[in-house]
């Protein structure tokens, strides 16, 4: 990518084309290495397109048909046709269907059953699939999914909260399991999950907000842990949490916008993890959602809890579950 001149504006048309082209690259090794999580790719791409005011760039009929083809008899979804069901992909499927307003295309009761069966009765934690991996990411997936389906009653919410709170650390952050290092992406999952079940009062908001602000580096970018490199995706994990906590204005907005814009591929479209690297759809979405939270023009507002366009969350009648105190 061309790094000789700094990008100062969002390349909307290029990003739309980039996302549309992803499905045509079947000869690339990268396509095959991500084949098992193609459903995630569809969610990242579709959400990005909606934020870019181009949700129709992917044909709704095709998208819904594809998602339906990933559902299994037990109600869960796999990352692609032929793979095994998993909670991660079940959330992505529900998010896509909510964006497309097409939940009636699948068996919702079976989804609820699948998600509920992932909860460990003793600890309140959630397992990713039948094999038993536990991670706070899965707590978020389960609660977000059930909230979007308005079926939070299907699980033991207070137990779920109990487990998340065990993963809180001395610095106010959260890890993937009790005692694990605070990590910005896990923090988003935990705080997002707590927001969904109206438990934000349990977060040490000032302390955590401080830690999150310390993720901003001299080049404006954010990292996810101390002394790590900056990465565009933390524009989402860190900002969304600050936004949920009503502390977004603690970040240096201008410098972060500049950092994300510089990570755009000005030829092929898409956004990379940092300037000069190859763009991918994951970083494209999280660059855009970050910019959206920073109130960058030309982008629809994103909901910091559900990582969906705000108008979608409003359409299904979910309350805003975050504090308001944005830029003044």
């Amino acid at each position: 990518m061309d790094t000789s001149e700094k990008q100062t504006r969002l390349l909307v048309d290029l990003h739309v084309k980039y996302i549309q082209s992803l499905d045509t690259k079947k000869d690339d090794l990268e396509y095959w290495l991500t084949e098992h999580l193609r459903l995630s790719g569809v969610y990242w791409g579709l959400t990005a397109l909606d934020l870019l005011n181009n949700v129709d760039a992917l044909k709704k009929e095709d998208v819904v048909k594809y998602v339906v083809s990933c559902q299994h008899d037990n109600g869960g979804f796999s990352g692609h046709i032929g793979h095994d069901p998993h909670l991660l992909y079940t959330l992505y499927a529900v998010q896509i269907l909510v964006i497309e307003d097409a939940l009636d295309a699948v068996n919702v009761d079976k989804i609820v059953e699948y998600v509920a069966s992932r909860q460990d009765r003793d600890t309140g934690a959630f397992t990713g699939d039948e094999w038993g991996e536990i991670d706070t990411r899965f707590s978020y997936c389960a609660l977000s999914c059930l909230s979007l389906l308005k079926r939070l009653d299907a699980v033991n919410v207070s137990k779920a909260v109990e487990f998340i709170m065990l993963c809180k650390n001395f610095d106010g952050g959260f890890g993937n399991s009790p005692g694990a290092e605070s990590h910005a992406a896990q923090i988003f999952c935990c705080v997002g999950a707590l927001a969904i079940v109206n438990s934000l009062h349990l977060v040490d908001a000032d302390l955590l907000g401080w830690w999150l602000c310390e993720r901003q580096l001299k080049n404006g970018g954010l990292n996810g842990r101390p002394e790590k490199l900056e990465d565009v995706c933390y524009s989402w994990w860190v900002l969304s949490t600050l936004s949920i906590l009503g502390r977004l204005h603690w970040i240096n907005r201008e410098k972060l916008i500049e950092f994300v814009l510089t990570a755009q591929d000005s030829e092929g479209g898409g956004i990379a993890d940092r300037p000069g690297d190859m763009a991918d759809v994951f970083h494209t979405l999280f660059g855009l959602t970050g910019l959206s939270l920073l109130e960058y023009p030309d982008l629809k507002p994103v909901d910091p809890v559900y990582c969906l366009p705000k108008h979608v969350v409003q359409r299904i009648g979910l309350a805003e579950r975050y504090h308001h105190k944005e830029f003044q």
Partner: peptide, 9 residues
């Protein structure tokens, strides 16, 4: 203590 879930608060 294993310090799980304990912070400044």
């Amino acid at each position: 203590s294993d310090f799980y879930g304990i912070s400044r608060k």
